[in-house]
């Protein structure tokens, strides 16, 4: 921060406060107001109506389904993310950058297209449709389809979070553990895992937020059967289209709370990661001359 004073002199205070005001005004209009609107609309008819809306059996069913889908998809995405990050960050192999690009692919695919591809594979007219139908297995317009679409949407988050972190940490610590006689699994549990703990938490919390909040992809495969295949975001849509504004915003407010909790945990995790990366840079002068700058890439499509 040695150049800071000279720079602060750069813009006149007048211009500086203008820019700050413009940026904050923009954020107030585009980010804060929508957030406030969710809670205001939800409580428009008072606290009683708010809780009544949440106690509705269909709302409860939607909440249960959303929790179930997250409980299945988050661990699966977690295992994939750790495996992919281990392979990509700790080893060199041919086709690595191609593989990394493929991991990013679901970020840039429209959620509706993500839903459609599962209809084409498992739907009544799809590849496995007749085969599944004979055996009475339903995937599309049922919970398995919702899980699959959510797996697609949440696919890259944890890997994208862990890869830069594990790359920056290198392999010296794991090698030392192995030389000292630790098994592969011990090395992972006692050396790698503590090192990537905060990156992992960060990835899991974002994956969870996406899993619970996904709308487009799930909407295509769900079939919108009330009480059976409506997740919370889909239930919000149904209520909203039936002009049950308070109930829609009440369910939406739970998702907004989830978003706020996600942001808080994310901020803490980011702060911890940054601190660990700094220690890493200070402790190891023999590592590549310019310590890799940690830039969270989680959302990069």
């Amino acid at each position: 921060m040695n150049g800071r004073r000279a720079l602060q002199r750069g813009e006149s205070p007048w211009l500086r406060w203008c820019l700050i005001g413009l940026a904050l005004g923009f954020m107030l209009l585009f980010l804060v107001l929508p957030l406030l609107a969710v809670f205001t609309e939800a409580l428009r008819m008072g606290v009683g109506a708010y809780f009544d809306a949440l106690r509705d059996p269909y709302a409860m069913a939607a909440i249960r389904l959303t929790l179930l889908v997250a409980a299945i998809t988050v661990p699966l995405s977690l295992v994939f993310g750790v495996a992919a990050a281990w392979a990509v960050a700790k080893f060199e192999f041919w086709g690595k950058s191609f593989l990394t690009t493929l991991i990013d692919l679901p970020f840039s695919v429209s959620p509706v297209v993500a839903g459609l591809i599962y209809v084409l594979v498992f739907g009544a007219q799809g590849w496995f449709g007749p085969w599944l139908d004979e055996r009475g297995i339903q995937i599309i317009f049922a919970v398995p389809g919702i899980v699959l679409a959510t797996l697609f949407i949440t696919f890259p988050f944890i890997a994208r979070e862990l890869i830069p972190l594990m790359q920056a940490q290198g392999t010296e610590e794991e090698q030392a553990a192995l030389v000292l006689g630790a098994s592969g699994l011990q090395t992972f549990w006692r050396v790698t895992l503590p090192n990537i703990k905060w990156g992992l938490i960060y990835g899991v919390i974002l994956t969870n937020a996406r899993a619970m909040g996904e709308f487009g992809a799930v909407s295509v495969v769900s079939g919108h059967i009330r009480g059976l295949t409506n997740t919370m975001p889909l239930h919000v849509e149904v209520l909203y289209n039936e002009f049950q504004s308070v109930a829609a915003f009440a369910v939406a407010s739970l998702l907004a709370l989830l978003a706020l909790v996600t942001l808080v945990i994310k901020t803490v995790a980011e702060w911890r990661i940054e601190r660990e990366m700094q220690t890493l840079a200070e402790l190891a002068p023999e590592r590549p001359s310019s310590p890799p700058v940690y830039t969270p890439r989680t959302h990069a499509s």
Binding site: L31, V38, A209, P233
Partner: peptide, 17 residues
């Protein structure tokens, strides 16, 4: 921290808000 809100807020919630 608030900058990331659009990432964390489910799109349907953003839509109705």
């Amino acid at each position: 921290a608030l900058v990331d809100l659009p990432f964390a807020l489910p799109t349907a919630v953003a839509g109705i808000a």
